[in-house]
Design a protein around this nucleic acid. Structure first.
Length: 296
DNA sequence: GATACGTGGGG
DNA sequence: TCCCCAAGTAT
């Protein structure tokens, strides 16, 4: 066993660093409740902090409780989601708010399994809410945590493909008995601001002298390459263009209007159909198109 | 386990 | 310009 004070990711060291260096994010404020934490976690799925912050403020002001969001139309929620990306998250958060309002007394659940049963909440988000909103000692594994552990503990340049079971066991082994949630926040913060993917600033790292990767001379990552996420020309781009039209109008639009955003007819129609299937778009009785729930 | 799913900033 | 990356989830 490694001496705790010399472990690569010592809790006292990391929490001390976090106390002094944590970013002042609104969902970390003492007055932010579990609903605010949940909204932030959903918005932060694959979307950078800088783009989330202003939208998060809008949402918490407009819908300070789950029941308030649940009472809103789906379309308005998708519109307020703006350009955060992956708008199905907005629909799922709206649905989760409905369940919380109806079945949980308008209080975000604190139990991991109950959270996991809500739409849009997976292994990461369920534990993030349990830890950051309720102070529970549960492993919180995101891409930052995986990268920090890969480097500091395993001496690899980057994390390999995710494995929920193995990744959670890795974190569980590091998690201190006390202040576990704060430790997880520190781990994530280190990965987000210092031990970054592209250009880690090892000179600023509080645990550099215990880092297996640094000690080994920062060898290049030799694992399998991540699949590249192309965007230009994909259905994702076309769906985004279609939805952007509908976000910008309160009145339903005729299909001819949507036809102007992309000139490959087959792809465009397929994307419109998939948006209808996903419930992100609805067709009005007269055949026009709109965001859902506003023009039945 | 692989794939689909938005959007925009930075190197 | 192109490519990588960003607090993932659902299928």
């Amino acid at each position: 066993m490694t001496d705790a004070t010399h472990a690569p990711l010592d809790a006292g060291t990391l929490i001390g660093w976090f106390d002094a260096n944590a970013r002042d994010l609104p969902w970390r404020a003492p007055e932010c409740d579990a609903w605010g934490v949940l909204v932030s976690e959903i918005m932060l799925q694959q979307t950078p902090v800088a783009r989330v912050e202003p939208i998060w403020h809008d949402w918490l002001t407009r819908w300070p409780r789950p029941s308030a969001l649940a009472a809103e139309s789906q379309g308005e929620v998708v519109r307020a989601w703006g350009k955060l990306g992956y708008p199905r998250r907005a629909l799922r958060l709206h649905a989760a708010a409905g369940v919380i309002a109806e079945e949980h007394g308008d209080v975000v659940p604190s139990d991991v399994d109950t959270l996991l049963a809500l739409p849009g909440i997976g292994a990461y988000t369920a534990r993030a809410v349990a830890a950051f909103a309720y102070g529970q000692r549960v492993p919180v594994v995101d891409t930052n945590v995986r990268r920090v552990i890969a480097r500091a503990v395993h001496g690899a340049g980057d994390a390999g493909p995710p494995s929920n079971t193995r990744d959670m066991a890795d974190v569980e082994a590091l998690l201190p008995e006390q202040k576990a949630a704060r430790y997880s926040a520190a781990l994530m913060e280190l990965g987000a601001t210092v031990c970054t993917a592209r250009a880690p600033e090892c000179a600023r790292c509080p645990v550099v002298s215990f880092c297996a990767w640094y000690q080994a001379g920062k060898p290049a990552y030799d694992g399998p390459a991540r699949p590249v996420q192309r965007f230009a020309g994909t259905d994702r781009q076309v769906r985004g263009l279609l939805l952007d039209v509908l976000r910008g109008t309160s009145e339903p639009v005729p299909k001819t209007k949507l036809d102007t955003v992309w000139n490959v007819d087959g792809q465009r129609d397929r994307c419109l159909f998939s948006l209808l299937e996903d419930g992100l778009v609805e067709q009005t009785p007269d055949g026009r198109f709109a965001l859902p729930g506003e023009h039945a």
